[in-house]
Computed example of a mutant assay.
Amino acid sequence: MAGGGHGASGAHNITHGGLSLHATKGWHSRVGQGMCAVMWFWVLYRAKQDGAVLMGWRHPWEGHGHGGHDEEAKHH
């Protein structure tokens, strides 16, 4: 079957319970951390914008000047 390749590159693997994990390169870790940060900034930004609606504390058609009852009353 597929051989394990026990060369110089095998020295950087981590084996636990028969599963070998390759060591990551430094730039892989930095890019992954950067993408994780972008994801969390996006999640927190959307929670700030839509969190009250998602939690049921406010209806999407209420307030914030996006065609709500206040703007309709000004035009009539």
Results as ranks from 00 to 15, higher is better:
M1C: 05
M1W: 02
M1P: 03
A2P: 08
G3M: 14
G5A: 08
H6A: 07
G7V: 08
G7F: 10
G7N: 08
A8F: 02
G10V: 11
G10P: 06
A11N: 04
N13F: 07
I14Y: 06
I14P: 00
T15Y: 04
T15S: 05
T15A: 13
H16T: 05
H16Y: 04
G17F: 09
G18P: 01
G18R: 12
G18F: 05
L19T: 04
S20R: 02
L21K: 07
L21P: 08
H22R: 15
H22N: 10
H22Q: 12
A23K: 07
A23H: 06
T24P: 10
T24F: 05
T24K: 15
G26V: 00
H28N: 01
R30Q: 11
R30T: 13
R30M: 14
V31G: 02
V31N: 07
V31E: 01
G32Q: 13
Q33M: 12
Q33P: 00
G34N: 06
G34A: 09
G34R: 01
G34C: 06
M35N: 15
C36W: 04
C36A: 07
V38T: 10
M39F: 06
M39D: 08
M39Q: 15
W40E: 09
F41H: 05
F41V: 05
F41G: 03
F41Y: 01
F41D: 07
W42G: 07
W42A: 14
W42H: 10
V43L: 00
V43R: 14
V43S: 12
L44T: 01
Y45W: 10
Y45K: 07
R46S: 14
R46Y: 15
K48Y: 01
Q49E: 11
Q49D: 13
D50N: 08
D50V: 07
G51S: 10
A52R: 00
L54C: 08
L54K: 06
G56L: 03
R58Y: 03
R58H: 05
H59K: 07
P60N: 02
P60G: 08
W61C: 13
W61P: 00
E62T: 15
G63K: 12
G63H: 10
H64P: 09
H64M: 12
G65I: 03
H66N: 11
H66S: 05
G68F: 12
G68I: 09
G68T: 05
H69E: 15
D70A: 14
D70S: 03
D70K: 11
D70T: 01
E71S: 06
E71K: 12
E71A: 04
E72F: 06
A73V: 07
A73Y: 09
A73T: 13
A73I: 02
K74Y: 12
K74A: 12
K74H: 14
H75Q: 14
H76N: 10
